[in-house]
Design a protein around this nucleic acid. Structure first.
Lengths: 223, 223
DNA sequence: ACTATGCTCGTACGGTGTACTATTTGTCAA
DNA sequence: TTGACAAATAGTACACCGTACGAGCATAGT
């Protein structure tokens, strides 16, 4: 009575692919905290325990999700020179992490790097080495750039606004009241000034990134 | 049969202080994932629901924990100049976050900053403004420094080793086998070189930090 | 003595990950 | 066609989680 090779409620059969993809969709739309095996199974029109045929446990699912996210980040394109390559890769990483804010948090404590993660690191390291960075200097540059990108994404994810307009809207009603001028004079002045000037957080990332890239220049020729 | 004003098993009475402190101890020693209200109550020799007299819910407990962590970070000491002040406070922040790795991840999604958090930001902003940074430039510097510190702490927390010796021990047995030279030639070469050179990750943080501080110098006088 | 208030906690409910077991389905040999 | 076996799906149960609700206790104030 059931269709030939298709279960009722599931238009296509399960696969690790489908499980992981749907899990990412759920984490993106709802919160990652609301991603449970039951909810995920339900969304896939499957029984809970069916998931465990494709995924050993929830931790492995999270690992797989993270590796997919890593795969979305553009690899550095060497021809343009290391600086442009690193810049473009950092910008791409930030975009991806902004799209999947739960991934930033999840990277921690997850010690086993997936294949996409390693492939990415290899490409970055190769780009820097070919540009003349020594192993030590390439390591320094790598730490510095990654720290900035992850830290920025982390802070950005905890911001209650995304665009300049949202900042302008929320700032007056929510931000300023939290900063009484007698207790926090400098923060108060700073927030007021930025609000008045129509501060746009969109350019904040590239500003710091370019500053770092400039500082890294001296490392390219260092031993 | 019970002591006068003291419950059996609890040598002192409960307080928000004690609840939060013990929660931090638990998160530090075990993992933050293993911090549950039941376990926490047990550790305090109290009933589970007693905790809810001092804390509205677990989220509020986590907020309080984070603010205590913030309070552990040294405030910048202006007299030494903005550069030294920012350097010392970044070093302190990294130490604190290394001691409480769970806090890094927790800062995200927790939108309401606690009093210690605000006090800290005020001190940093004040230091930069007094040093001649404009509001815009101080904001840039703040974002850049915080991103680096948090990102570095995040990466550091996911490392399986802490010291140079641990790196040397683990590197040979665990790291290298994950990096076959045919698939990841540059990573393989890099890891091998660092291992042979006795690479010490302890200095990595200050290296990048000083590079950033140097780059920030030009911002001090910019509009 | 009586009440009020501050504090503690047991029980219960709906959620979680997943071990164990059972069932259905697809494939191929005889 | 039938049987057998493996691949795939799922139900049930258990231990754990956060916490709503309300009952109890000790002390202070009257």
């Amino acid at each position: 009575m059931a269709a030939k090779s298709v279960r009722a409620g599931a238009e296509v059969s399960l696969s690790k692919q489908r499980v992981v993809t749907e899990a990412i969709r759920l984490a993106d739309t709802e919160d990652v905290a609301r991603l449970s095996m039951r909810r995920l199974a339900n969304e896939l029109g499957a029984g809970v325990m069916s998931l465990y045929y494709y995924v050993a446990n929830k931790d492995e699912l999270l690992d797989a999700m993270i590796d997919v996210v890593f795969d979305e980040i553009e690899l550095p394109a060497d021809p343009a020179g290391w600086k442009a390559a690193m810049r473009q890769r950092a910008v791409s990483a930030r975009q991806v992490l902004a799209r999947h804010p739960w991934a930033i948090t999840l990277m921690e404590s997850r010690t086993a790097p997936g294949p996409a993660n390693l492939r990415h690191r290899e490409a970055v390291f190769a780009c820097l080495r070919k540009a003349g960075f020594s192993v030590e200097m390439a390591t320094h540059a790598n730490w510095l750039l990654d720290s900035y990108v992850y830290g920025y994404a982390l802070q950005e994810a905890s911001l209650p606004f995304d665009t300049a307009e949202e900042f302008a809207d929320i700032g007056e009603d929510v931000f300023m009241p939290q900063l009484p001028p007698d207790q926090y004079p400098y923060l108060h002045e700073g927030a007021a000034t930025l609000l008045a000037a129509g501060y746009d957080p969109a350019d904040e990332f590239t500003f710091g990134l370019d500053l770092i890239l400039g500082a890294l220049e001296v490392l390219a020729a260092a031993p």
